[in-house]
Structures are given as C-alpha cells and as structure tokens.
C-alpha cells in the first residue's frame, strides 16, 4: 500500500462533502484498500447498536410462514400466533393422530359400504365427535406441556389461554373431521350429524376440566360417549341413527352444550395453577 493515508482533516472534509471530486474519489479508492483509514471513520455507537440489532433480529426472529400470513390477514396478531404455535396439540404428532383416526373411520366405512348399505358410516359417526376432544386434551396442562410450570406462572396463564388454545385445536380437528365427513358414503347429512355431539363433548370436557385436569375430563367424557353409543349400537341397532343422531337427540346435545358453556363461564377461574381445585 502507498505511504499516503487519509488524515483526520481530510476525513472531516470528506464527510462534510466539501472536497473537490477527484479528492473524494481518491479518499474512497484509498479507503477501500486500507483497513487503517476505514477504522478512522467515526461511528455513532448508538446508531451502530441500533443497526446491528435489526440485523440480529432478521437473522434470529422466527419468520412468518404462509399459515401465519394467512391468519394475519384475517386479523390474528403475531403475538397470539406465537402462543398458539406452542400449543402441544397443534404439533404434528397430534394432528397426525387426529388425521389418522378420521381416515381410518372413512376407510372402514367405505369397506363396509361394499357389502352393506346405510349403516356403513356408523363407525365414522361414532368416532368423529371424539376427535376434537382428543385434540382438546392436548391443548394445555402439565400432562402434555413440559413447560407447563413456566407457562402457568406468567400473566397470560389461566382461562383466556386455555380457551384460545382449545378453540384453535377444536377448529383444526373439526376441519380435519369435516373433510373426512365429506368423503363419506351414504346420505349427505351424515357429514354434519356429528357436529353437535362434538360441540357438546368439547364444551363438556372444558367444563369438567374446571374440576379435573383437561386430560382426565377428556378421557371421562370421550369414554362415556363411546360406551353409550356402543351400547345403543349393540342393543337397539335398528333405531341407532334416529336415536343417537335424530332431531330430538340433536336438540338435547345443543341444550347440554349450552349448559356446559354456562358452567365453563362460571368456573373459568379454576383453570389457573394457583387455584386449589
């Protein structure tokens, strides 16, 4: 390198923009080859830190994926999305479990439909309402969330977080079961007949979870549904569909779900860790 270096006076003139063009070019050409002179350019440390923090964040912060962008468009803020993505039941393992149960039911229904007509989709109708309950059981709590003790002692903990996550997983599971229902052989209304029982089981599970853990409540209500329905299926097979999914039954499900919601609202505080149940 040449012996010549940019002296402080020249550097100051360069920064103020008062040098004539050839000298500017000389300074720049020299600086691109001389580390010493580059280092002499004064830097505002506040600016430097600020500029660096933007670089740091762009490298490390989670990037918005297609799902987040879609949800952002319908009004879901970024921070809420972060809360939901850490929901255990929104992990792939849970979604795949839900998906495979639904798929199994549909496949079984199709296989049965080859030989028998009408009653083929019963298996689906029996299983579909349980899917969202399985998902809800993985939404919150010490059994499914290893970080539960940290999550549960933050100011966001409590009923709001439980319900946000429950709604998110119920939504996902219902969508999966709904798609499965559309693929079902038999009368078209079968694809929707399971929705009210599913609603009852979900709200019931949440209401019961104000007494027991979410997982215990899910097992209790899911088990109760399966036992009851299987009993009807075995004992009074000929009236199964009208008895379990007929208009009267649907009305009862709706009324019971409303009651469960009322209980849930009254007892919502009990979702909190610091509360003795």
């Amino acid at each position: 390198m040449s012996e010549w270096h940019v002296d402080p006076g020249l550097l100051q003139q360069y920064e103020q923009g008062v040098l004539n063009p050839s000298r500017v070019m000389a300074v720049e050409a020299h600086m691109s080859a001389c580390a010493t002179c580059r280092g002499r350019v004064p830097v505002d440390i506040t600016w430097l830190t600020g500029n660096w923090s933007v670089v740091f964040d762009s490298i490390h912060a989670p990037q918005a994926g297609p799902v987040q962008r879609l949800l952002a468009r319908v009004g879901l803020p970024e921070h809420r999305f972060r809360l939901l993505t850490a929901t255990p039941a929104l992990r792939w393992s849970w979604l795949i479990a839900t998906l495979s149960v639904g798929a199994l039911a549909v496949i079984a229904a199709w296989l049965a439909a080859a030989g028998e007509t009408g009653g083929a989709s019963r298996l689906f109708l029996v299983l579909a309402p349980v899917l969202p309950v399985v998902a809800v059981s993985g939404a919150y709590g010490s059994g499914v969330d290893p970080m539960h003790e940290i999550t549960g002692t933050t100011p966001s903990a409590g009923p709001a977080l439980v319900l946000w996550r429950a709604v998110a997983v119920i939504g996902a599971a219902t969508a999966l079961a709904g798609v499965a229902g559309l693929l079902l052989p038999g009368p078209g209304w079968y694809a929707a007949a399971w929705l009210l029982p599913a609603l009852l089981l979900c709200t019931g599970t949440l209401a019961l979870a104000t007494v027991w853990s979410l997982q215990a409540a899910a097992v209790a209500l899911g088990g109760l549904w399966l036992t009851g329905v299987c009993w009807v299926l075995g004992d009074r097979s000929e009236v199964f569909i009208p008895f379990v999914f007929g208009p009267i039954a649907q009305f009862v499900y709706l009324a019971a779900a409303a009651a469960a919601v009322a209980v849930l609202i009254r007892r919502r505080r009990h979702f909190d860790l610091g509360e003795s149940r």
């Binding site: 989670p62 803020p77 921070h79 972060r82 809360l83 850490a86 940290i150 933050t154 100011p155 966001s156």
Partner: peptide, 10 residues
C-alpha cells in the same frame, strides 16, 4: 420469544 409473549410483550 415465546415466553416473552406469555409475559404480555405484545
């Protein structure tokens, strides 16, 4: 980042 959201840093 996740815990910070839980701590209400929106």
């Amino acid at each position: 980042d996740y815990v910070a959201v839980l701590k209400e840093m929106t």
